[in-house]
């Protein structure tokens, strides 16, 4: 297990590692509060039951610039439903009474910054959120939040893109929790084909770190997931799940669960 040294010299272990201990991991993404937090809770519990190894909980943002139309829609629905950061913290507190798998927040820099970075990150630690993914926080701006994340033992997840090239090694060397490898150019959303040479990216990552790599963006079908899992440690799916939630609304927990089961089987094969 990897050890992290925080600013005070204390040592702790990343809980996220647990998600990758039993073979390839399937990571579903849901936007908290779409269509309401009660449904999000049901979806998360069902996904855990059906084999999700880690869950990405989206905190909605008014202007999610890294998202395609599907997840933008989830953000709008959740905010229109009145969800806030504080309500999501309470929701996770409740969730943690029975959910033990690693959980990470996925949101935008301003949601953390505006809440008060220290207040946000210390609350994450308190409610046992294991990591934070901020798609608008590249390597060069990590210092905005990293010292605070270290202080509270919350992993700040780094992303690697198809355009990262010579930046891969630099990002990988300082990565925490897991590395989020963006499969394709563009924003989130399902794609029929992924053409990036992901195996080569993962190879460079492996030369620089032993933390797990999960691939996301554009993946929806089990066949794609199988291919992605073959070259990495896990697969992340957002838009395909959000589409199900959009379609089935408050009754989506079961269908999402079935989908998670199918995808978990695909990545483990």
């Amino acid at each position: 297990m990897r050890l992290l040294h925080d600013t005070e010299g204390m040592i702790f272990m990343s809980n996220i590692r647990k998600a990758f201990e039993n073979g390839k991991t399937f990571i579903p993404f849901v936007t908290c509060g779409d269509p309401d937090l009660e449904t999000t809770g049901k979806i998360v519990r069902e996904a855990v039951k059906k084999g999700a190894g880690l869950i990405e909980l989206g905190i909605p943002f008014s202007d999610p610039t890294a998202e395609g139309p599907v997840i933008q829609g989830a953000n709008i629905r959740a905010l229109a439903g009145g969800v806030t950061t504080d309500k999501i913290f309470d929701f996770v507190r409740e969730l943690r009474k029975d959910i033990v798998i690693p959980l990470v927040f996925m949101t935008y820099a301003n949601v953390v910054f505006s809440y008060g970075s220290e207040k946000f990150i210390s609350t994450c630690a308190e409610i046992e959120i294991d990591g934070i993914i901020l798609p608008d926080l590249p390597f060069e701006e990590k210092k905005e939040f990293q010292p605070i994340c270290r202080k509270y033992g919350v992993d700040l997840i780094s992303l690697i893109a198809p355009t990262s090239n010579e930046r891969i090694a630099m990002i990988a060397r300082e990565a925490e929790g897991f590395l989020y490898i963006v499969s394709s150019l563009g924003v989130t959303g399902t794609r029929s084909e992924i053409t990036t040479d992901l195996a080569s990216i993962v190879k460079v990552v492996r030369e620089n770190t032993d933390i797990p790599c999960a691939i996301g963006f554009g993946i929806s079908a089990p066949e794609q997931a199988r291919k992605m899992a073959a070259v990495s440690d896990g697969v992340i799916v957002g838009s395909a799940i959000i589409k199900l939630i959009e379609k089935y609304g408050k009754d989506s927990a079961e269908v999402v669960g079935e989908y998670v089961k199918k995808m978990k089987e695909a990545v483990t094969e």
Binding site: T65, A66, A109, P135, D136, L137, P138, F139, E140, E141, E144, S158, L159, I160, A161, P162, T163, S164, N165, R167, I171, V182, L185, G186
Partner: peptide, 9 residues
């Protein structure tokens, strides 16, 4: 420069 990694290069 608070932008996605995809745009950094």
């Amino acid at each position: 420069r608070y932008i996605p990694e995809t745009l950094m290069n």
